[in-house]
Computed example of a mutant assay.
Amino acid sequence: MAKWLFKSEPNVWGWTEQMAKAPAGEEWHGVRNYLARNNMRAMQLGDLGFFYHSNIGKEIVGIVEVCALAHHDSTTDDPRWDCVDIRALRPMARSVSLAMVKADPRLANMALVTCARLSVQPVTEEEWRIVCELGGAGP
C-alpha cells in the first residue's frame, strides 16, 4: 500500500469539510499539475495519505484513504485532468507543522521539504512512520 500527502488551503477546503464528507469521501479535484495528476493515477484503493493544510497553518492535520481510483475531474471539460476520491479516516492527535518536518533530519528528503509546491506527493514508509510518531497517530 502506497502513502501520499494531499495539500489543501484550509480556507478553500479544510479538514473540517473533509471530515464532514466521511464515510463517502470527496473528489480531490482541481489539480492542474501533471506530476500531481500522475501521482493520483498511480494510486490504489486503500492507499493512505496525510491531509495537509497549506498556506494557512502549514500542518498535517489528518489521515485520509483513497476510496475511488483516478477518474475524470468533474470540474473541467479538459480530458487531461483526473482525480481520485479520498475519505477522512482520523485526525492527527497533534498536528505536525511544516517547521517540525523541516527540523527533523530524518525527513530532510521528504517531498514536503524538497518539492514544496507539489499538491499531491508520495510519502515513503519511513516518512509515514516518523510523521505518525510526531503526530501521535500510531502506525
Rank of each mutant, 00 (worst) to 15 (best):
L69R: 15
L69E: 13
W4D: 01
V123F: 04
W128T: 11
R106Q: 10
P122F: 05
L5A: 07
G136Q: 02
L98G: 06
M40I: 00
W15R: 12
A22S: 14
T75Y: 00
V31F: 04
G135S: 02
L134I: 04
V61S: 08
I60R: 04
G30D: 08
P23C: 04
R90V: 07
P105W: 05
C83A: 15
I60D: 06
M19S: 14
M1K: 15
A70W: 06
G25S: 08
L112V: 14
M43K: 02
H29T: 12
W28H: 06
R90H: 07
I56A: 08
T16A: 14
E133C: 04
H71L: 06
D82N: 15
G14F: 01
K21N: 09
Y34A: 13
M19G: 04
E17N: 13
S119T: 01
L112T: 11
R80G: 11
V101S: 10
G25A: 03
Q121Y: 09
H29C: 09
P79K: 15
L118C: 11
L112K: 04
V131L: 08
E65P: 02
M43D: 03
P105I: 09
P122M: 00
Q44H: 12
F50N: 01
D82H: 15
C83F: 12
A68K: 11
A24W: 07
V101K: 05
W15N: 10
Q121H: 10
R41K: 15
L48T: 02
E126N: 08
F51T: 07
K21E: 11
L134T: 00
N39R: 08
M19Q: 13
P79Y: 08
G135C: 04
K58W: 10
V101F: 09
M92G: 00
T114H: 06
V31A: 02
C83P: 02
C132T: 07
G138V: 12
A137K: 01
F51K: 05
T16S: 12
V84H: 03
D73A: 14
Q44Y: 06
K21T: 11
K7W: 03
L35N: 11
D47K: 03
K58N: 13
A103D: 10
C115A: 15
G136F: 04
A22Y: 07
D77I: 14
G25T: 03
E65D: 03
C67G: 00
L48Y: 08
K3W: 11
S95P: 14
L69T: 13
I130V: 15
M110S: 13
N38A: 08
A42V: 01
